[in-house]
Simulated assay, not measured.
Amino acid sequence: MANKTIGCALEVHKALGPGLLESACQECLFYKLKLKGINVEKQKPMLLIFEDVKLEIGYRIDLLVENKVIIEIKSVESLKDVHLAQTLTYMRLGGFKLGLLINFNVSLLKQGIKRVINGDL
């Protein structure tokens, strides 16, 4: 599923180029994935469970593909450790093993894609 998602992201980036807001990239990728018949949710809330308390504190996954792959979208000069930490946090909270951290603000999108795997889950 990650490869299909990356293919859609490449199509979006090829058509629109770098420089768009993250929200625009998210909407375009969401549209493209839906068009291809892929089950995708946007801005999916993530609960934080601490002891026996479920806390809704504003965590949201940009896109969740087929209820398996987290997509975290950025449009920044360069990806930072904090972006990776955010993706890993969402993966841990949701029990997901695969995430894609995609920075649309690059000349070649393949340079802005980071596959994140958490084998501890």
Rank of each mutant, 00 (worst) to 15 (best):
L10H: 11
D62H: 03
G99R: 05
G37Y: 08
I38C: 06
S78C: 02
V116N: 08
V106M: 05
I57Q: 00
E72R: 07
L64P: 06
Q86H: 02
M46H: 00
E41G: 02
R92Y: 12
G58A: 02
V12L: 04
V116R: 09
L108R: 15
P18Q: 03
L16W: 06
L47Y: 10
K80S: 03
G119W: 07
L47G: 08
E72M: 09
M1F: 10
Q111C: 05
L108Y: 14
R115G: 10
V69W: 07
V82M: 05
K34T: 08
I61H: 02
V12S: 02
L98W: 11
T87G: 06
V53M: 13
G99H: 11
E66H: 09
L84M: 11
I113T: 12
N103L: 04
Q86W: 00
I6P: 13
K110V: 15
I73M: 08
G7D: 06
L16R: 12
I113D: 11
E56D: 13
R92D: 10
A9Y: 10
H83W: 03
K74W: 02
C25V: 06
E27Q: 14
N3L: 13
I113A: 07
I71L: 14
V65I: 14
L108M: 09
G58S: 00
Y59C: 01
V53T: 14
L121F: 13
K114H: 12
V12D: 01
V12Y: 04
K4H: 14
K32R: 15
N105H: 01
Y31N: 05
I49E: 09
L121K: 12
L10G: 09
L33G: 06
A2P: 03
L10K: 14
S75D: 00
K54G: 08
K68P: 05
P45C: 01
K74Q: 03
Q26A: 11
A24L: 09
L10E: 10
E22F: 02
K32P: 01
L108A: 12
G94E: 11
Q43L: 07
R60Q: 06
E66K: 15
K54Y: 10
K14V: 00
L64M: 13
E77M: 00
D52P: 08
L63G: 11
K68R: 14
T89L: 07
G37M: 09
